[in-house]
Amino acid sequence: MHTRMRISKMSIITETTRLVIREFTREDAQAVYDFNAPEAVNRYTGDVGCCNSLEDALSIIENIWLTEYAQFGFGRWAVVLKETGKVIGFCGFKHEPRLMGVDIGYRFHPDYWGQGIATEANLACFAYARTNMALVEVFGEVVTENIDSIKVIKKLGMEFVKQYQQDGYNIAQYKVLL
């Protein structure tokens, strides 16, 4: 039997039929560790070894996401399954000085891959941004070997901009106008 988690209305960004997208809290450290733990999750992110403990997960929440919420009013957001109240990954925006713009990103535990969740969550983020944020364009970058992530990027309506190499990876850059 699953119990539904109580979510503060203040922290909810948006919802879909299956998902609640909300700000992360310090109480999400275990979930952040859990969805980052499988090796396959970070294979193409450049984040291998960044979340090896609950302390690392808490540091990511406090020093990256909560800081970005305070500084920019947005960041990566928790994706919660409505049915169970479980945080299964993240989606959302990141101010990216290297791009001189905003990047969309997503990461989910492998148990939730192949179910359309990444597409559903990020389309909801785009809808939210069109109504509530002053964004004109959003970038998405993906390692070219990450075929499944490229499929998501294309389902989001993002168009190819360029390909380049960084840290030994071939990276494809996409963008969408909001």
Rank of each mutant, 00 (worst) to 15 (best):
residue 46 G to W: 00
residue 46 G to A: 01
residue 46 G to N: 00
residue 47 D to R: 03
residue 48 V to I: 14
residue 49 G to V: 03
residue 49 G to R: 10
residue 50 C to R: 10
residue 51 C to Q: 12
residue 51 C to Y: 10
residue 52 N to S: 15
residue 53 S to Q: 02
residue 54 L to P: 07
residue 55 E to D: 11
residue 56 D to R: 01
residue 56 D to M: 02
residue 56 D to Q: 05
residue 56 D to F: 07
residue 56 D to T: 04
residue 56 D to G: 03
residue 56 D to K: 02
residue 57 A to W: 05
residue 59 S to M: 15
residue 61 I to N: 05
residue 61 I to D: 00
residue 61 I to E: 03
residue 62 E to G: 11
residue 63 N to F: 10
residue 63 N to M: 11
residue 65 W to T: 09
residue 65 W to N: 10
residue 66 L to V: 10
residue 69 Y to A: 00
residue 70 A to I: 01
residue 73 G to A: 01
residue 73 G to N: 01
residue 79 V to C: 03
residue 80 V to D: 08
residue 80 V to E: 15
residue 81 L to Q: 02
residue 82 K to H: 02
residue 82 K to P: 04
residue 83 E to K: 09
residue 83 E to H: 05
residue 84 T to Q: 00
residue 86 K to V: 10
residue 87 V to Q: 05
residue 88 I to M: 00
residue 88 I to S: 00
residue 89 G to S: 06
residue 90 F to Y: 15
residue 91 C to Y: 05
residue 92 G to W: 11
residue 95 H to S: 09
residue 96 E to M: 05
residue 96 E to G: 00
residue 99 L to Q: 08
residue 99 L to K: 06
residue 99 L to E: 04
residue 100 M to L: 14
residue 102 V to H: 05
residue 103 D to T: 12
residue 103 D to S: 12
residue 104 I to Y: 10
residue 104 I to H: 04
residue 105 G to Y: 01
residue 106 Y to Q: 03
residue 106 Y to T: 08
residue 106 Y to M: 08
residue 106 Y to G: 07
residue 107 R to K: 06
residue 107 R to D: 06
residue 107 R to I: 09
residue 108 F to E: 04
residue 111 D to F: 06
residue 111 D to T: 05
residue 112 Y to M: 00
residue 114 G to K: 09
residue 116 G to M: 09
residue 116 G to C: 11
residue 117 I to L: 12
residue 118 A to W: 10
residue 118 A to S: 07
residue 118 A to R: 06
residue 119 T to L: 02
residue 120 E to V: 10
residue 120 E to C: 11
residue 121 A to Y: 07
residue 121 A to K: 07
residue 121 A to Q: 07
residue 122 N to K: 14
residue 125 C to E: 01
residue 127 A to Q: 11
residue 128 Y to N: 02
residue 128 Y to D: 01
residue 128 Y to C: 06
residue 129 A to L: 01
residue 130 R to K: 14
residue 131 T to M: 11
residue 131 T to G: 04
residue 131 T to A: 11
residue 134 A to F: 11
residue 134 A to Y: 13
residue 134 A to C: 14
residue 135 L to G: 04
residue 135 L to I: 05
residue 138 V to G: 07
residue 138 V to T: 06
residue 141 E to I: 15
residue 142 V to G: 09
residue 142 V to C: 14
residue 143 V to L: 08
residue 144 T to N: 13
residue 144 T to C: 12
residue 144 T to M: 10
residue 145 E to D: 12
residue 147 I to G: 13
residue 150 I to R: 13
residue 150 I to P: 04
residue 151 K to D: 13
residue 152 V to D: 03
residue 152 V to S: 05
residue 152 V to W: 03
residue 153 I to C: 01
residue 155 K to W: 06
residue 156 L to C: 12
residue 156 L to G: 13
residue 156 L to S: 13
residue 157 G to F: 14
residue 157 G to W: 14
residue 158 M to F: 12
residue 158 M to V: 09
residue 160 F to G: 02
residue 161 V to N: 08
residue 163 Q to V: 09
residue 163 Q to I: 07
residue 164 Y to K: 08
